[in-house]
Simulated scan of single mutants.
Amino acid sequence: MKTNYLFPHKFKTISGILFIVATLVMFYLLLIDDSEIINLDTTVFAVMNDDIFGKMKYFEFIPNDIFDELLISVFVISGLVFAFSKEKIEDEMTAKIRLESLVWSTYVNYLLFFLCVWFVYGSIIYTVMMIALFTHLLFFIIRFNWKLYTFKHSADHEE
């Protein structure tokens, strides 16, 4: 079966480790302690920037702590590589489980987002929208690996 869109299997382990670490750090910052773990203040180029009580500015250099940008980049890149790396045995059943998991995670993510739109109010909705960007990938990885695990173990018991 041709799977040109998948990364090589050799990337799965390191991307999985990076993804787990980034996920744990993000949850720690979001749920437990939102203070700065690491301060990486630097000057960055901003296409758009608005100060809290200022006007919108375009194409300028601004001071910024880039720890959150680096953390989100590690989360997204490692998550995509981990989610879309080939398995040791990549067959039609693995592709079917991958597709079903992708569809399932899309439905669940948008159902939860829809519920939040109707039941979460105030400025916290922006946090919910930010979380919704990451949960789709997280739901897919969890469901795909769980279904793959249960399929492999049910096949072991049948033999």
Rank of each mutant, 00 (worst) to 15 (best):
D34F: 09
S35Q: 14
A83M: 01
F61N: 06
V44R: 00
K55M: 12
F67S: 03
E69I: 15
F19A: 05
F67L: 00
I52H: 11
Y58M: 13
I14G: 07
G79V: 00
I66L: 01
V47T: 11
L31M: 10
I38F: 14
F61R: 07
A22V: 01
V47W: 05
F67C: 02
L80F: 07
S15Y: 04
V25Q: 06
F45C: 05
T42K: 06
F59T: 13
I14H: 10
G16M: 06
I77D: 03
N49G: 02
G16F: 06
S85F: 00
F84E: 01
I72T: 03
L29R: 10
A83G: 03
I14W: 13
S85K: 03
A83N: 01
V21T: 07
P63C: 01
V25G: 05
I62E: 03
T42H: 07
F11D: 07
V47C: 02
F11N: 12
T42W: 07
T13A: 15
D41I: 09
V21M: 05
I14Y: 11
G16T: 04
V76Y: 03
D50A: 15
V81R: 00
I77C: 07
E69G: 15
F11P: 03
S78F: 00
V25S: 04
V81G: 02
E69T: 15
D33Q: 06
V76M: 09
D50V: 12
F84T: 02
F53T: 14
L29V: 09
I17K: 07
D34P: 06
E60I: 10
S15P: 03
D68G: 13
L40W: 09
D68Y: 14
K10P: 02
F27D: 09
I38H: 08
E36H: 15
I38S: 09
F84Q: 02
K12R: 14
F11K: 05
K86Q: 08
V76I: 13
F67G: 01
D33E: 11
S35Y: 10
K55T: 12
L70S: 10
F19G: 03
K55N: 11
L70P: 06
S15A: 14
Y28Q: 04
A46W: 00
I17T: 07
K57N: 09
S35L: 10
V74E: 00
I17N: 08
L70A: 13
F59A: 13
L40H: 09
F45A: 04
I77Q: 05
I14Q: 08
L24K: 04
I32R: 07
M26Y: 10
L40S: 07
D68F: 15
N49V: 06
F59G: 14
V47D: 05
L40P: 06
L29P: 03
V47S: 06
L70G: 08
N39F: 12
T23R: 04
F75V: 06
V74H: 03
A22G: 04
L71F: 00
S73M: 12
T43N: 14
K55C: 11
K86N: 05
I52Y: 11
